[in-house]
Amino acid sequence: MISIWFFIGLSLLVNGALILAAGLYQLVNPPENATVVLFNLHANVWWGAILFVLGAFYCLYFRPKHS
């Protein structure tokens, strides 16, 4: 049976990748009028990276194994 923790890892991995990609895009192409407060901190870059790494760890550690 696939572990619940694998599903969680998958969720964090995919979400982290999407958020990190969006953050990096904005880092390279900053919007003319930032719509969020504290845009200069680029939270989506580092937060996306944290989620991605955490998700990758969960996916690897709890990956389905053939018995």
Binding site: I19, A22, G23, Q26, L38, F39, W47
Partner: peptide
């Protein structure tokens, strides 16, 4: 909406 940009807002 105040703090979260693209991606973070979706999450």
């Amino acid at each position: 909406a105040r703090y979260c940009g693209p991606g973070l807002l979706g999450l």
